[in-house]
Design a binder for these strands. Structure first.
Lengths: 199, 199
DNA sequence: TTCTATTTCTATAGTTCTATAGAATTCTTT
DNA sequence: AAAGAATTCTATAGAACTATAGAAATAGAA
């Protein structure tokens, strides 16, 4: 069995997670077979179970991989010293870029995580809440220092930003030719005009 | 076999489509079994094939059911005489309300239609394009008569509205206690502030 | 009622999929 | 090179699922 410390093992396991991410993103959790994942790695179906105890575990790993770093990045943004608008731009940029960089894992987190059993979902839930709360905090801070209109509901606003980014993220994953920076720029434009005061 | 004209048949078939919609929305196309759908109708698994030639056909019907009326409604809005803002409000209202009224079918259209074979998807694609184009037209009209800022990209704007509505629609389907009209009001607020000129 | 058409049921063939066991191979270290 | 550990393979049990065929039940019309 695996010695979790092995360098080769963890590299290959990372590859397994990425392969699973790609396949789950394309076919969905239930639509994807363990055979599809294995094939993408160039190994046989049964061999996949050297890396995962079950298909569900694979999904769990993909979701975690998909959201983890990106939540950490949000913490950095939220705790920073920048003004509201810069934080919003940074958030949208980070969120949308991660759809490209980390490939399909974030999409899988969004679309398939509900198929995980509750126990496996709790850690993901924490991370998701963490993200949303920090984003909410950015809006609250913005309201406090006058950048954001008083009528804005911060909880709604955070949800709206996340929802919009995910919707565009879907298109970004599906269409590799879509201009990422164009999308980032237009999204932030919309949000800034939508939430901040006019000079 | 079925005589398509029978009143009872079409009623029961409608029930079958709705049952399929509910199950597909909850478990996804591949995660759902024909048994689940049949059970929800109170019939046995095999009997379902009296109404559908295949599971795929069921999905096709659900998607069609999910988007059809709602596209027709959009045509009415787009061709109307109202000013830009009223059209935008009507669009968002129609879109989000249909997540409640027509239950889960629209969610299924959004999330599962890609699992249909191309042939079956073409009609849906038409309807979807139709919707987006008309929405784009509303923005163009708005630009022409000065309501919408000149810097707005109408194609982007239409996609953003759709994406935002779908994201909230997901939450609306998942959480029946979520206040629909609150969401509608806040979404339109954001969009109007984001896209129109300030007085 | 009796005949006919509609709807549902039972049973099953045939397929596909997950997970496991144990053998075979490859890599690492001594 | 030989031993031991890590990785992959083959083969398969066992479960689940789709779709079909034909029998049974139900409802409607004559």
């Amino acid at each position: 069995m695996q010695e979790a410390g092995t360098k080769k093992y963890s590299q290959q396991r990372q590859a397994a997670v990425r392969a699973a991410a790609a396949v789950f993103a394309e076919k969905g959790f239930h639509g994807a077979g363990t055979k599809d994942i294995a094939e993408r790695m160039g190994i046989k179906q049964g061999s996949l179970y050297y890396y995962f105890k079950s298909k569900e575990e694979a999904l769990g790993e993909v979701c975690l991989y998909g959201i983890q770093e990106y939540v950490e990045h949000m913490a950095t943004i939220a705790d920073g010293e920048q003004p509201f608008e810069a934080k919003l731009v940074a958030t949208v940029t980070s969120h949308l870029s991660s759809y490209r960089e980390r490939n399909e894992a974030l999409k899988v987190y969004n679309d398939e995580r509900l198929y995980l059993p509750k126990a496996r979902r709790s850690r993901l839930k924490e991370l998701g809440s963490d993200y949303r709360q920090r984003l909410e905090g950015i809006f609250e801070e913005g309201k406090a220092n006058g950048a954001v209109r008083q009528s804005v509901d911060c909880h709604f606003a955070a949800q709206a930003v996340i929802g919009m980014c995910n919707a565009w993220g879907d298109l970004i994953v599906r269409d590799p030719d879509l201009d990422l920076f164009m999308v980032i720029q237009k999204c932030t434009d919309l949000l800034i005009n939508g939430f901040t005061k006019k000079p």
